[in-house]
Nucleic acid binder design. Structure first.
Lengths: 194, 194
DNA sequence: CGCGACGTTGATTTGCCTCAACGATTGTGG
DNA sequence: CCACAATCGTTGAGGCAAATCAACGTCGCG
């Protein structure tokens, strides 16, 4: 079960087999059917989740009731409401399974213990946070300085795997345009490249 | 000289006086006249900077040559191109002094040494990163789900000090609207509240 | 003094949203 | 297993918020 997650971690840090055993002993597993929520806004997000099967979206709902997708995650990706996890405040994000999915997760109290007992794990988590930070900064810059069409091109390039798996209107929401607009962008794009 | 920065750090962690001495010995100081650049896009950003005097903006330039302000910093704030600092890749941001300014800075190699010798400093830096992350997430959500007028109201509320100090067109760029639009928003706002 | 930077206002344009209708596909309950 | 509903993507028409373009007044600075 924990094969994939250990591979993921070994890409960044190395652990002794004793450390790996401790780590594995603290992992938990959860199965979510399509349309079920891993995290709901208002909850306190007390775990970091690693996707082993399926696909998720993290989104915020505005006061008009419209969704805005912030990120997606498929196999081998981590997902959580990092803000809620870090601060202990209620989550502003919802995380929903877009397919029948499975995650391995680790609770904050256990992860904090791991930080103490496996010092190199601090580095791993810092990398997780760094990468999240960097991808957010790129996203802000791209929202600010690119047109919807350019953002779509970037999205396809960066998330080709995801783009084929999720409904188009979720991509539209991620890009910050209406489904109709994305549909028209795609048409123009096809006309151009054909 | 290092009074302000020590106060800033003591708000988050505590150090022994030996540790403080080590830390202080690694600090450097830099004076920048108005319109000078602390970081230029393309540089590798090798320091974290703490503002002791004046005011800065961090911005990206798109391919049409338009600026987009990402953040501001005044006294008692930290500023850098975190992405470049963390990854060692060339900076995508420019950081410019908007007034005659001064910073205390610490180079990456020295900060890495501090992480080894003052373990609690890891926590301080993690907090710095966390806060940057959280404010970015809030910014993304606000860009997505609020109108320009709402974002302006939030900006004033959160950065009242800054708003009075910097040219209005820089605020417009931060909010992602044209200077003309911000000017009109302000007029409507005055009419409403008078 | 004269120039440039900044903010304001008006006129025009435009990119995108909203609303509406429709076909195709998927899912579901009788 | 079929019929009906729901979901999803597409297309067209109309409207609006904000960008762009342009002109002008004011202030501060070299």
């Amino acid at each position: 079960m924990s094969d994939l997650i250990l591979k993921n971690i070994r890409r960044h840090i190395s652990m002794t087999s004793t450390e790996e055993d401790l780590f594995k002993s603290l992992l938990k597993h959860r199965v979510l059917r399509k349309r079920y929520f891993l995290v709901q806004a208002g909850d306190i997000c007390r775990s970091e989740h690693f996707v082993t099967k399926g696909c998720f979206r993290a989104f915020a709902t505005d006061k008009e009731g419209n969704d805005h997708n912030l990120m997606f995650a498929v196999e081998d990706w981590w997902i959580s409401d990092m803000q809620s996890y870090l601060t202990g405040m209620p989550a502003t994000l919802n995380i929903e399974a877009l397919e029948d999915s499975e995650v391995i997760y680790i609770e904050k109290k256990d992860l904090d213990r791991i930080f103490d007992e496996i010092p190199s794990f601090n580095k791993f988590f810092r990398l997780l946070l760094q990468n999240a930070f960097i991808s957010q900064q790129q996203r802000i810059l791209s929202t600010i300085s690119n047109t919807a069409e350019e953002r779509y091109a970037m999205f396809i390039k960066k998330y080709a795997i995801i783009e084929q798996r999720i409904p188009q209107h979720h991509v539209a929401s991620y890009l910050g345009v209406s489904p109709e607009t994305l549909s028209r962008i795609r048409r123009q794009w096809q006309e151009k490249t054909s």
